[in-house]
Amino acid sequence: MTKIWGIHMPEWVGDDPIEHGYACVGWPHVGDIFALPPNRETYKSALAETYPDKKPGSIPVDAGTLFRFAHEIQSGDLIIYPSKHNRMVNLGRATGKKWHAPNDAKGDDDLPNFIGVEWIGHFPRSNFTQAALNEIGSFITLFRVREHAAEFIAKVDPSQAAKQSEPADEEAVPDDVASQNASQLAEENTQDFVIRRLHSGLTGYEFEHFTAHLMECMGYTARVSEKSGDGGVDVIAHTDELGFQPPIIKIQCKRQTSQVGEPEVSQLLGTLGEGEFALFVTLGSYSRQARVRERNTPRLRLLDGEELVELILEHYSQLSPRYRTMIPLKQIYVPDLIGD
């Protein structure tokens, strides 16, 4: 039976695993994890020796991650990589290729252990149920996907989307890791909830009005331009009520959860005059080419779904009752143990 694995890689790896066909894990001081004898005790000993400051409770979990990555993932297994930098869920098949390629320049951030992956599908998070997203939101680097396996399989091979039922055999997770996992899930659930509500509760034109309202909550004066379809400037914002004082911000709004490409961004830039700036707002994400364009264009700012949610949370108390009713939220405190 094909196994389904979820893997988390740091946000800074970006699209590189997709473009070069791999998945990777760290723990560089352990060395070549593929050369170790195939038993968990060896991996526990190697971790304890090379990371003496690691909490004893986390060693079995991390050793299990390395052991499974090195010995249990087989050719043909389905790999699920939720990429945080663009809020996409990437699905691929393990090729069976495994290799160790350390990069000493990266130090403790190095991810030297690789498996080959043929990536075959890339889907916005909004394409999946919240329960399925919760399952792949694990704080553990590598984990089995069981309960909602059929939902993910159906995206790449509908004929094999029968529900799989397997006994759980995960290592016990330390309390701190479980608490941090709950905190991360709360954050991701909030992002997913807000984006789903905006996408389902607003038309494209209404999303433009929402964006204008959010700009006003941030201290700008904003107005929505006349209905003209895609391709034009949707909202104009400025710092004074009459619109004479720079900067003038021209805003393009896309109520979509898929990626926005560089051509659409360039189209907005083509509308700018002297002293004007461009802001692109989407519920989804941006292609690498669009992000490169942003880095090379001081007058351009790209706001993706995750960043939009951050602004909404920051200015939530200033939103009109209509929008607070559409996006009902309450403030809570959750454990923050990453730097502990």
Rank of each mutant, 00 (worst) to 15 (best):
T297C: 05
Q191T: 14
P328L: 01
G273Y: 00
V265E: 00
W27D: 14
A178W: 09
T211H: 05
S58K: 05
L78W: 02
G137F: 02
L47T: 05
P263I: 06
V61C: 03
E170T: 08
C217E: 06
M218L: 15
A35P: 00
D240A: 09
I249K: 05
R196D: 12
I249E: 15
T325Q: 15
G76Q: 04
I33W: 04
E310H: 07
L202P: 09
G305F: 02
V194L: 05
A105M: 09
P10Q: 02
T271A: 14
L308A: 07
H199N: 14
G92Y: 00
E262F: 12
Y286D: 02
E294R: 13
L302T: 07
W99L: 00
A278P: 12
I195Q: 04
V235G: 09
E11Q: 15
P17H: 02
E276F: 00
E274H: 11
M1F: 01
K3P: 04
E264T: 15
Q245W: 03
M218P: 05
G6E: 08
E264S: 12
G231T: 09
S126I: 13
S285I: 04
L319F: 12
A161R: 06
F67E: 11
G261H: 14
P10T: 01
N90D: 11
P102H: 02
Y81M: 12
S285R: 03
M9K: 11
F128W: 08
D53R: 14
R293A: 13
K155P: 06
T190Q: 06
S58Q: 07
Q130D: 09
R87S: 10
K330L: 11
Y323A: 12
Y81S: 13
R125Q: 11
H100I: 01
K54V: 00
V334P: 10
A101T: 07
L185I: 15
R295N: 14
S258R: 11
T325C: 03
A237F: 02
P263D: 01
N181Y: 00
E147R: 08
D104S: 13
E19A: 08
D77E: 00
D109L: 15
S225V: 09
K84D: 09
H100M: 14
L133C: 08
F123T: 02
V265S: 01
S200Y: 02
L303N: 02
A70I: 09
S159M: 14
E49M: 08
F207D: 10
G201A: 11
L283W: 10
V156M: 03
Y333C: 08
K55W: 09
G275N: 06
C24S: 15
K44V: 10
I18D: 04
K3H: 08
A278H: 08
R196W: 07
E151H: 02
L300E: 00
R291I: 13
A237G: 02
R255E: 07
N86F: 12
N189R: 14
R68W: 04
T325I: 07
F152R: 13
D157H: 05
A154L: 04
L329D: 08
G96N: 07
T257I: 11
M215Y: 07
H148L: 06
S285D: 10
I312E: 02
V61K: 09
T257V: 14
S58F: 14
A178Y: 06
E41T: 15
P112T: 03
A212H: 03
R255V: 06
H315N: 15
R40C: 02
D108K: 15
I73Q: 04
A70T: 05
I338G: 00
